[in-house]
Design a protein around this nucleic acid. Structure first.
Length: 280
DNA sequence: AAGAATGTTACATG
DNA sequence: ACATGTAACATTCT
């Protein structure tokens, strides 16, 4: 579900819901594996009483900065989802963590597939140490992208999915970026021309910014699809050019969008716009 | 009703 | 050290 634009949308939504300044007055853990490294009891003991000082994003992590120098880093993985609850509904079976707040509201963590993780840390630096640059940061230039790709002989798609190369892209936005840059997903990174790297850089930022502007991508209508914490679906699905559009016409050239497997992920492309370079 | 699903990591092999 | 491939996590959706 969540890639950079979705996680950014979640963080903005949590901030807009005025969670900063609230104190956590209680914790319920219904699926202990969600809490990394700590027992639910240890987690509860360390979190209850803390005040939320700030909520930020790094790559696909949501960073809850608490008082006493603690940070709760949450990774949503595939189906993790926060929901701010202001009434007295009862939690459904996929709500695995509940945080009670001092203003009477609750925060639910839904996660159908149970891959999401909460890391409660004194210092998040080790967790974040291996992440590559933020693609939307002001200082992420085409030159920095070129540096990140320098000397790499791997195919470009698996490299862009690798969070230590660039942080925040996932399967949707990589396919959309490569289509926009007219680059074949199997193209070896070291064969990209400077012009292609500039195109890739521009495409990546345009595609991600559009995703953020549209409040993320919600695919289909199931429970497991992305929703921001106050319940909204993202509006970006309409803007996707190739992702899950197999067999439909390429919006740029009219060719047929194809699906192939790359790096064990389903990959969508237009072969006419994204020719595979001959690599040796 | 089999296969795929927005993510990551550990492990094996080349 | 680099690269690639597979399995695993757990459940739902098409």
């Amino acid at each position: 579900m969540p890639e950079l634009p979705e996680v950014e949308t979640v963080v903005r939504d949590l901030c807009a819901a005025r969670l900063v300044g609230r104190r956590i007055t209680g914790v319920r853990v219904r699926w202990p594996a969600t809490i990394a490294d700590l027992s639910p009891e240890q987690f509860k003991r360390r979190v209850v009483g803390r005040t939320i000082r700030a909520i930020r994003r790094r790559a696909k992590f949501i960073l809850w900065e608490l008082d006493q120098g603690r940070v709760l880093a949450v990774h949503l993985r595939m189906t993790g989802r926060f929901e701010v609850i202001a009434d007295n509904r009862t939690a459904g079976k996929h709500v695995h963590v509940v945080l009670l707040l001092d203003d009477g509201r609750r925060l639910w963590f839904h996660d159908t597939r149970k891959f999401g993780r909460f890391y409660l840390l004194q210092d998040p630096a080790p967790l974040l140490a291996r992440l590559g640059p933020e693609p939307l940061a002001n200082d992420f230039t085409a030159r920095r992208l070129a540096e990140a790709l320098a000397g790499r002989r791997r195919a470009i798609k698996p490299l862009l999915l690798d969070q230590s190369v660039v942080a925040g892209l996932g399967n949707i936005y990589v396919d959309e970026t490569l289509w926009a840059a007219r680059i074949h997903p199997l193209c070896a990174a070291h064969t990209l021309s400077p012009a292609q790297i500039r195109a890739l850089h521009r495409a990546m930022r345009r595609v991600l910014r559009q995703g953020v502007r549209n409040g993320g991508t919600t695919l289909g209508s199931g429970q497991t699809n992305f929703h921001s914490p106050v319940g909204g679906a993202g509006r970006n699905a309409d803007q996707l050019k190739v992702f899950r559009r197999t067999g439909r016409p390429c919006p740029r050239c009219g060719g047929t969008i194809e699906r192939m497997q790359v790096a064990q992920r389903s990959t969508h492309l237009c072969r006419r716009c994204q020719p595979q370079e001959i690599t040796r």
